[in-house]
């Protein structure tokens, strides 16, 4: 039974199948909201209200010709999309998607899984950098260096912002953090600054406007993805979608009290809370223009990092004097 559970966990929920279907739904939601905010219709044709459009796009890309540039490092060039996809799916498995029995957590929840998921979410950035670098295209290389430059900006604020709720809860384990905040919901308000910082950092990590600098099409064509086509591009796009789901799930776990109750109740909460985070990210995307890479780094260190430190200070003070 335990083996079956593990297999179901890996393959169905919240494993590959669920992540695939839900990430395409999230992409549709993102596109639709973005379009409505711009007075457009968004996807309408494939499926009801265009729900199947992201899947259709994925299938179309899978069927397209797959070209590897002559001068590229062929093995690395081909392996990176799969590696990237595997990394984000692994990260997805770590999300505490239901009320895990804290006494016997099983293999997926352990002390310190918060650090592991943050680490796993950093890896796709490195994959994108290597993808840009191994393409040996001038545009890709510039895109790759931009990916790394941005990493130095947003990564530290993100870590600080996500760790402060953990400090308040006194645990490095996501299931425990979520349980702590479900027990003390008012304490969620303490972390508001951290939530905003984390939201903006996640936007940067997902490379969405105003931080879509590494693949800014009007400047450097496709950036890191310039030379990618066909299946490999499809995997990268799926990777980005799943990364968005995982990042939204992480924020929902840490800042919104996670997903309590039975499996069904937890499922509904997961959908509602991640969609709320995605909605905020989409609004942020719609109301801003793209900024420059030097502006990202200076913005991250002048605003995000100090705010994250302030959040940490507030948390420590509250923990020391109030609780």
């Amino acid at each position: 039974m335990a083996a079956l559970n593990t297999i179901l966990y890996l393959v169905v929920f919240p494993g590959i199948l669920f992540l695939f279907v839900y990430s395409t739904f999230v992409e549709w939601f993102d596109r639709k909201v973005f379009a409505r905010l711009q007075n457009r219709m968004g996807p309408t044709h494939t499926g009801k209200s265009g729900l199947l459009q992201p899947i259709a796009d994925f299938v179309k890309l899978m069927a397209k010709e797959d070209i590897v540039p002559d001068k590229a490092d062929k093995k690395m060039f081909s392996a990176l999309p799969v590696v990237g996809l595997a990394i984000v799916i692994t990260a997805g498995l770590l999300l505490p998607v239901w009320n895990i029995d804290l006494a016997s957590p099983g293999p997926i929840s352990f002390p310190g899984d918060l650090i592991v998921i943050l680490y796993l979410l950093s890896l796709p950035t490195l994959v994108l950098f290597l993808a840009g670098w191994s393409s040996t295209n001038a545009f890709s290389i510039i895109g790759g260096t931009r990916v790394l430059t941005m990493l130095f900006g947003y990564e530290v604020p993100l870590f600080l912002a996500v760790l402060s709720p953990a400090v308040l809860a006194g645990s490095w384990r996501m299931a425990e953090i979520a349980a702590f905040y479900r027990a003390h919901p008012l304490l969620l308000l303490v972390n508001l600054i951290g939530f905003v910082v984390a939201l903006i950092s996640v936007q940067a990590k997902l490379e969405r406007t105003p931080f879509d600098i590494p693949h800014a099409e009007t400047e450097i064509v496709g950036g890191t993805f310039t030379e990618y086509s066909g299946k490999k591009l499809a995997f990268f796009r799926l990777m980005a979608d799943i990364e968005m789901v995982v990042a939204a799930g992480l924020l929902a776990t840490v800042f919104m009290g996670g997903f309590g109750g039975g499996i069904l109740s937890a499922f509904v909460q997961f959908i509602a809370k991640t969609l709320l985070v995605v909605f905020l990210l989409t609004v942020l995307r719609a109301v801003t223009g793209r900024i420059r890479v030097d502006q990202v780094v200076s913005f991250a260190w002048k605003w995000l990092a100090p705010l994250a430190v302030l959040q940490l200070l507030i948390v420590i003070l509250i923990k020391g004097f109030v609780l």
Binding site: Q38, R40, T209, T218, A286, T288, G289, R290
Partner: peptide, 10 residues
């Protein structure tokens, strides 16, 4: 060109 597509659409 500035990556501000909403402005473009409006």
């Amino acid at each position: 060109e500035a990556g501000f597509d909403t402005f473009f659409m409006y």
